[in-house]
Amino acid sequence: MAMTVKPWQWGNVPSHEMATPVKGEVVPKLMKAAKRPLLITGGEALKEKWGDKPLIDFVAEVAKIGIPVIATADSYKALRDRGVEPAAIMSVADVTNRLQDPAWSIDGKGSYDLVMYVGISYQLQSQMLSTLKNFATHLKTMSLDRYFHPNATFSLPNLKQDEWEQVLNNVVKALKS
């Protein structure tokens, strides 16, 4: 039976149709199934924790596995310091704006099929997911943050910090395997 999840921000109810909440083990499967995944990260990745490290370390791990990352806000430097050169540095509005165009991609090789956001403040991320939900119906989207994002195609449910960290650990492990 499908989970019923309230948006993290209670007032953020955009529609009767909301994201499909996904269990942690489904996340790496969706990522692996994607032929053209993209991960967008932002300034919250420097503040949020992943165990005893900042969340940006998780982003760096994913990038090293081969998923292209776009660095928004001030997340670039931290990624570079971890040996990762993001595919691009853009504002989150700029990248989301371009993602509405099915022909657009950073590498010029055509549309992405799974766009993921992580480490971007809740409301701004929600608004960006709303744009893609409504005006980029060719895309699937997923939030990897620990808050349920109703505007995404797939979202983690609202998780406790340790539960979420475990999900991210499993993502890294599964992607590496």
């Binding site: 300034g43 919250e44 928004t72 806000a73 001030d74 504002s91 989150v92 509005a93 701004l124």
Partner: peptide, 8 residues
Amino acid sequence: IALENMNE
């Protein structure tokens, strides 16, 4: 444009 944080 809406931006995410002070640095940006």
